[in-house]
Design a protein around this nucleic acid. Sequence first.
DNA 1: TCAAAAGTGTTCGGATTACACCCATGC
DNA 2: GCATGGGTGTAATCCGAACACTTTTGA
Lengths: 236, 236
Amino acid sequence: MAARVRAPDRAPTSACAVAVDVALLTVTEGRLQLLLVEPDDPALHGSLALPGRRVRDDEDLDATAHRALAELAGLRAPDAHLEQLRTYGAIARDPRARVVSVVYLALTPTTDARLGTRARLIDVAELDGPRPPRLAYDHDAVIPDAIERARAKLEYTPLATAFVSEPFTLAELRGIYEAVWGVALDDANFRRKVRSVEDFVVPTGERSRPGPGGGRPAQSYRRGTAARLHPAMLRP
Amino acid sequence: MAARVRAPDRAPTSACAVAVDVALLTVTEGRLQLLLVEPDDPALHGSLALPGRRVRDDEDLDATAHRALAELAGLRAPDAHLEQLRTYGAIARDPRARVVSVVYLALTPTTDARLGTRARLIDVAELDGPRPPRLAYDHDAVIPDAIERARAKLEYTPLATAFVSEPFTLAELRGIYEAVWGVALDDANFRRKVRSVEDFVVPTGERSRPGPGGGRPAQSYRRGTAARLHPAMLRP
DNA sequence: TCAAAAGTGTTCGGATTACACCCATGC
DNA sequence: GCATGGGTGTAATCCGAACACTTTTGA
């Protein structure tokens, strides 16, 4: 019995737990959205949180991120773009225990997949609105970092293509930039810029069908092989 | 009682330790240098590592980074620029135990301070040279990330000023850019660019003394208040 | 034939580059 | 004076913003 009690006692020097939280962003109908879930802990009822799980000894951090999405949101997204955002380690960020959280940023196209019953997509504009949802832990500090990272990365990497499924049109891609950045872009200049960046997108030769209102069919594209954009797509 | 038994049971799945490692860069005589130390562990004799320490329950991650610098390199650098690089969590990155490492990037001016006997500054050019030092853990993967982060951040933030002590001259600042990027810059254009960025540097009104070979005294500058450079100082 | 959406051309102004030139100091 | 490093001027060029214009479809 004493041993059991002491185990937590020894912890103080280096036993803080490691968790991975995921900020998954997607663009639906021209609006940037964030995946939030209702936390397990009943004490946090009424608030929302990024999906997160403790890291197990037999999985690396990326695996924990995928597991958090699968277990908490019912999302299997092995193809989603996943990258580390940063690690949050303030002593009291979780009031119950010392937990260091490695936060990931995930980007996916809009999916038809059913979300778990405790998961919701929130319009990021709502987070700055008059009635923002209550957020658990330090996630009110994490989320703006994630959104800013996504906005910045669209400038110098081809990450915008992670928000669309292939094949896509340049108008769809422009819609991603406009939704994430919250600005309107000049179609002509956007088109020229994208096509001038080597290996950003490659035309498939196919054309997409116009919408119900008519319009000229658009050229279809796929992701190119570029890892960085030269020159960058700078925000206005 | 059931509750008490369950607590330790849950632990094994999430008991990996958290450490902080620090990649401290400085520029000495026009060369970019990295601080490395001989690891504590005798099994790692002959190799070098970034200074690192386990995170204690009573300190946040920044505090651990400062402690690692102080305990392992004898460096007290409360004024150094310190920022998180990223977190490395591969299962076997430390062969002895599961350790997740939060790596920090630190930038300081050249210091006269005595380094601890087990600490050395290594020329980063040596790391790609014919006889690179043997590196412990996964630090051979971490160090290039740190150097690239520093190079990238000089472009769009005023971080170059973290490598010089105040007051400094524009020639000194240019020397930082040249050392970190490994390129030669046009003095006239550099000067104009720096001065055109609002609040990047502010002239003190003082002038520095010329060196022994003569030359016109240079205007002295201090760091300005800008957090981002508009427009950026792009690498050639 | 008209509206809608895709796609092209053209002009303008600001930023970047390359390099010639002037200034102040030690020896 | 002259070598050394600090600092300025300027013309050529590149790049992005703005916007007018043409093409191809549905109704």
